[in-house]
Each structure stands twice: as C-alpha cells, then as structure tokens.
Amino acid sequence: GQVHVGDTTYHFPNPEEARKFAEKAAKENNLQVTQHGNTFKVE
C-alpha cells in the first residue's frame, strides 16, 4: 500500500499498515483520508 501525504509518498508492504498510518496522519493533522484501491491519500 502507498500513502500520499502532501508531496511525500510512504510505501508499506501491507495495505492494512498503510491504512492505519493514513488514518493516524489524518487525525493528527485534521485532514481526510481518501482510498483508491491500496493507495491512500491524506489531504
């Protein structure tokens, strides 16, 4: 799974890890998570 936060892309071998990371980043920054397959975008 990939997580895009601003201009930075994080790669995770496990989509579940990617999702947890995205949700945590979104919560900390008052942002939203959008999911496209195994790619998550925090914005």
Score class of each variant (00 low, 15 high):
G1E: 02
G1N: 09
G1Q: 05
G1H: 13
G1V: 12
Q2H: 13
Q2M: 14
Q2V: 15
Q2A: 11
Q2Y: 15
Q2R: 12
Q2E: 12
V5I: 15
V5A: 04
G6Y: 09
D7G: 14
D7Q: 11
D7K: 12
T8F: 13
T8V: 14
T8D: 10
T9F: 09
T9S: 06
T9N: 04
T9M: 11
Y10D: 00
Y10Q: 02
Y10H: 06
Y10S: 03
Y10M: 05
H11C: 12
H11V: 10
H11Q: 08
H11R: 06
H11P: 04
H11M: 10
F12I: 01
F12R: 00
F12H: 02
F12V: 01
P13M: 09
P13F: 07
P13R: 10
P13I: 11
N14M: 04
N14G: 07
N14Y: 05
N14K: 04
N14D: 13
P15V: 15
E16F: 06
E16D: 11
E16W: 07
E16S: 06
E16Y: 07
E17Q: 07
E17I: 06
E17M: 08
E17S: 07
E17K: 03
A18I: 00
R19M: 07
R19P: 02
K20P: 03
K20E: 13
F21L: 00
A22S: 02
A22E: 02
A22K: 00
A22G: 01
A22H: 01
E23P: 00
K24L: 12
A25I: 15
A25L: 15
A25S: 08
A26R: 01
A26Q: 03
A26M: 03
K27W: 10
K27Q: 12
K27M: 13
E28L: 11
E28H: 08
N29R: 11
N29Y: 14
N30S: 09
N30K: 09
N30L: 06
N30D: 09
N30E: 06
N30V: 04
N30G: 14
L31I: 04
L31W: 13
L31P: 02
L31G: 14
L31Y: 09
Q32P: 06
Q32G: 08
Q32I: 15
Q32W: 10
Q32V: 14
Q32S: 13
V33Y: 09
V33D: 01
T34D: 04
T34P: 01
T34I: 13
T34Q: 07
T34A: 06
Q35D: 04
Q35G: 05
Q35W: 07
H36A: 09
G37Y: 05
N38D: 09
N38H: 08
T39I: 15
T39S: 13
F40P: 03
F40W: 11
K41D: 07
K41T: 15
K41Y: 15
K41M: 14
V42K: 01
V42L: 13
V42N: 03
E43G: 14
E43K: 05
E43L: 10
